[in-house]
Design a protein around this nucleic acid. Structure first.
Lengths: 212, 212
DNA sequence: GTCTATAGGTTGATAGAC
DNA sequence: GTCTATCAACCTATAGAC
C-alpha cells in the first residue's frame, strides 16, 4: 500500500474507478492509462482486450462479495430467518465494501443490460440468486416461489440503485439521506425488505385502501 | 401510423429503441440513422447534437409519464392511502406504457449516473420526488421524512430494475417471472412496497429473528 | 515489461450541392 | 429538407525497438 503498486494493479484500480464513475462504454483505455499513469500498450500486454479488462475488473470485486454472501448464508444455517438471509445478502456490499469506488462499479454491472454483462451476470449472479431464493422459500413457507423471486428482483433493484447513486444521494435528497452510517442503512434496508417479504400473498393491494 | 412517419419522428423512434437496448454511449448516430433509414446528416439538421437528441428522446417519454403521475396523485386527494400513492407512481409505467421499447429507455435514465443525465434527473424527477415524498409523509404520519425518502429510494430502485431487465427477466428467472400480466405485477409491487412502507420505524431488524 | 509509433477503424459534426 | 463527401478527433489493438 505504501509502495507504488504494480502496473497491472494500477490499471485495475484506475479502470475500476472510471468504469464506476462513467460507465464502461464511456471510459476509454486512454482515460484509464492516463489515470493510472502507465503506458497505453500496457493494457493490451497485461490484459488482452478492453472486454477482458472489464471482466477482470468486475470479477476481482464481485467474486469475494458473492463468496462472502454464501459464507454468511451458510453460517445462518438451515433455519435462517428472513432477516438473517437479507443480512447475508446485504452485509458484504453495504457494510464490508471498503473501497469507495467499488460500489458504483457493482451497481453498473447490474444496471447495464448488455450481451457482455449478461454473460458475467449468468456466471456470477445466477447461482447466487438460486441459493438465496431457496433459502427465502424455506424461511417463508407460505410464499410461492414466483412471488419470492419477484420480491428478490425488487430487492436487487433497490440494492443496485443504492450502489449506483451512492455518490450523488446526499445532494439528490437535500441532505436527508447519505451513507455516513452504514450499519443504520443496513438495518433500515433489512427491516424494510423483511417486512415486505413477510407480506402475505394473495391480499389485493386495494385491500389496504381503507386501513388509513 | 399507417403512413410512413416523418424523418424527425423516425429518428426519435429509432434512437429510443437503440438507446434503450444498448445504452446511450454504446449507440452511435450511424446506428440510429441506419435503423431509421434516414441520412446521417438529418440528425444534425433536426437536432443539433447527439446530446440534444438524447434529451429530446428522453423528455418525449418521461414528461407525459410524470404528468400522469401527478394527475393520478391529485385524483387520489389529500387523504390518499399508501396504496393510492404507490399506484399513482407505478401505474403510468407498469400499466400504461404502451410502447415496448420505452421501458428500457426510462430504466437507462435512472440507471446511468452521468453529469448529463443528472441534469435531466434534476429537471424531470426532482420535483416529482418531492411531491410524492410529501404525499407519503401525509399518509404515514408516524414516519420521519428521512425514513420516507430512504424507502422511496428503494422503491425507485426496484422500479428502475424492473424496467431495465424487462426484456431479459423471463429467461433470467427460468420462466418464473415475466411481464405478461401487468395488472398482477402492479398489484404485487404495490402490495409489497405498501407493506414495507408501513413497517414501524425504530424496530431493529434483528427483532424479527425469533419470529420464524 | 515497458515504451514509441502507427495501423485501421469509428465517431460526431459540417460544408456545400441539389 | 435531404443528400454526398469529408474532416478532425478519437478509439482499440498491435508491431517492433529497447
Amino acid at each position: 500500500m505504501t509502495e507504488r503498486a504494480g502496473t497491472k494493479t494500477r490499471i485495475l484500480d484506475s479502470a475500476e474507478k472510471l468504469f464506476g464513475e462513467r460507465g464502461f462504454d464511456a471510459t476509454s483505455l486512454r482515460d484509464i492509462t492516463a489515470e493510472a499513469q502507465v503506458n497505453l500498450a500496457a493494457v493490451n500486454y497485461h490484459f488482452q482486450s478492453k472486454e477482458s479488462l472489464m471482466e477482470a475488473v468486475i470479477c476481482r470485486r464481485i467474486e469475494p462479495v458473492n463468496r462472502r454472501r454464501i459464507e454468511l448464508l451458510d453460517q445462518a444455517g438451515e433455519n435462517a430467518s428472513v432477516e438473517d438471509i437479507l443480512r447475508a445478502f446485504l452485509i458484504p456490499v453495504v457494510l464490508e465494501l471498503n473501497l469507495a469506488g467499488v460500489a458504483p462499479l457493482i451497481g453498473r454491472c447490474l444496471a447495464d443490460p448488455s450481451q457482455f454483462l449478461e454473460r458475467i451476470f449468468r456466471s456470477q449472479f445466477a447461482p447466487l440468486s438460486n441459493r438465496f431464493a431457496e433459502a427465502l422459500c424455506r424461511a417463508l413457507p407460505g410464499l410461492p416461489k414466483p412471488e419470492v423471486v419477484w420480491r428478490q428482483h425488487f430487492l436487487v433493484g433497490a440494492m443496485t440503485h443504492l450502489l449506483m447513486w451512492k455518490p450523488y444521494l446526499k445532494e439528490m435528497t437535500g441532505g436527508l439521506c447519505d451513507w455516513s452510517d452504514r450499519e443504520v442503512l443496513l438495518d433500515r434496508a433489512v427491516h424494510f425488505f423483511a417486512t415486505g417479504f413477510r407480506a402475505p400473498v394473495g391480499a389485493l393491494s386495494a385491500a389496504g385502501k381503507d386501513l388509513n
